[in-house]
Simulated assay, not measured.
Amino acid sequence: MASGNRSQTAQGLTLIAPPLGYAVLVLAAPLLTILAYSFFKDGYLTVIREFTLENYRTVWADPIFHRIMLRSLGVAALVTLATVVLAFPVAYFLSFAVAPQKKAMWLFLITIPFWTSYLIRVFLWKVILGYNGVINSGLKTLGLIEQPLTFILYNVNAMVITLAHAYAPFAILPIFIALEKIDRSLLEAGRDLGESRAMTFWRVTLPLAMPGVVAAALIVFIPTIGDYVTPALIGGGKIPMIANMIQAQMLDLDNRPMGSALAVTAMLIVAVISLAFIGLNRRFLKVRQ
């Protein structure tokens, strides 16, 4: 019996070895390289003896980093909130209102934005929100404004709208999967016991859908902080986020150690916030139960 288990383990390891090796190659190796760079005094790998913590001291003491990091977290939180709030009704509609034979078609329609490049979608939002864009042209045609509105582009609101649209499918799909796993008999039992639809949703549907909501929030929150295209184009370069700061250090200033220290620090902050969010969600579910 033990030998059989060992053979199955060996077969499993053999099966996952190629993808595991690929994952280590394309994920772990770059991360380790950035981590190593963050301790160098300059950007050359030949100076492997000159390790220093000065890069991290500079990062943590820099008020500009504090301000940009807080802004990045705030924008990411707004985007996550807007995306999840808008994605939940769509996922709920797909799960409870759409006929089973038509769900595949609706999911197919949701994935259509992936057919175009992310950069093209950002440019399209710039065209829509621009000084002579679709919104301003439409309002002028209707006679609602005389001069184009200038506050709908190059600000945080425009960035939130663009990012929420870009990451909406990533939020809809995990919430939809969580809703699909809910046993419909539980909802019927709640109705039979005299609960209203609203209370049944609050006490049964929402807690059971929380794993999907948490997954959607993390899927949107983490990459949003690392986005640098939208702040550069939709923000007009006036509202830089942490990714723009890292890009400037890495490319414009050619200061790889400082850029790496910024990247590692940002990853640690995001990891701590994500773990805290997951812990609070588990506590919420225990209280609800």
Rank of each mutant, 00 (worst) to 15 (best):
Y154T: 10
V156K: 04
P148D: 06
L144T: 01
T141G: 03
G130V: 02
K126T: 04
V156D: 12
N136M: 11
G138E: 09
V122S: 12
G143W: 05
L139S: 06
N136A: 14
G138F: 13
V134Y: 15
L153K: 00
V122W: 10
P148E: 05
L144D: 03
I128G: 08
Q147K: 06
L149I: 12
N155C: 07
V122Q: 10
I128H: 10
L139R: 02
P148F: 06
L129S: 07
L124I: 14
W125F: 15
F123A: 06
L124H: 11
Q147S: 05
K126Y: 12
V122K: 11
I145A: 01
V156T: 06
G143F: 09
E146F: 09
N136L: 11
T150E: 06
V122M: 13
V127Q: 11
G143R: 07
G130H: 05
Q147F: 08
L142G: 05
I145K: 00
I135W: 01
G143S: 05
L149R: 11
W125N: 06
S137I: 00
N132L: 10
I152R: 01
G138Y: 07
L139W: 01
Y131H: 10
L129Y: 07
I152Y: 02
K140E: 11
V127F: 14
E146C: 02
N132W: 05
G143M: 02
V122N: 13
V134S: 13
L129H: 08
E146H: 11
Y154A: 09
V156P: 00
L153R: 04
S137E: 09
V122P: 11
S137P: 00
V134T: 14
L149P: 03
G130S: 06
T141Y: 12
I128P: 06
I152P: 01
P148T: 00
V156W: 01
L139E: 08
Y131K: 07
K140N: 10
L142S: 13
V127L: 15
K140W: 03
G138S: 12
Y154V: 05
I135A: 04
V134L: 15
V122Y: 09
I135G: 04
L139M: 15
L153E: 09
K126N: 12
L149C: 09
N132I: 00
K140Y: 03
F151V: 06
W125T: 10
V122I: 15
G130W: 03
V134G: 15
V156E: 14
I128V: 15
K126L: 10
N155L: 08
G143D: 04
N132R: 12
L153N: 04
T150N: 02
V122H: 11
W125H: 07
V156I: 00
G130E: 04
G133E: 12
G138N: 06
T150R: 09
Q147D: 03
N136Y: 07
L139I: 03
K140F: 02
Y131Q: 05
P148I: 05
N132H: 13
N136G: 12
P148K: 03
L139N: 10
I128S: 13
V134E: 15
I128D: 13
I145R: 02
I152G: 09
E146Q: 14
V122R: 10
S137R: 02
L139Y: 07
I135C: 03
G143V: 01
F123Q: 01
L149M: 15
G133H: 13
V134A: 15
E146A: 13
Q147E: 04
L144E: 01
I135E: 03
L124V: 15
K140P: 01
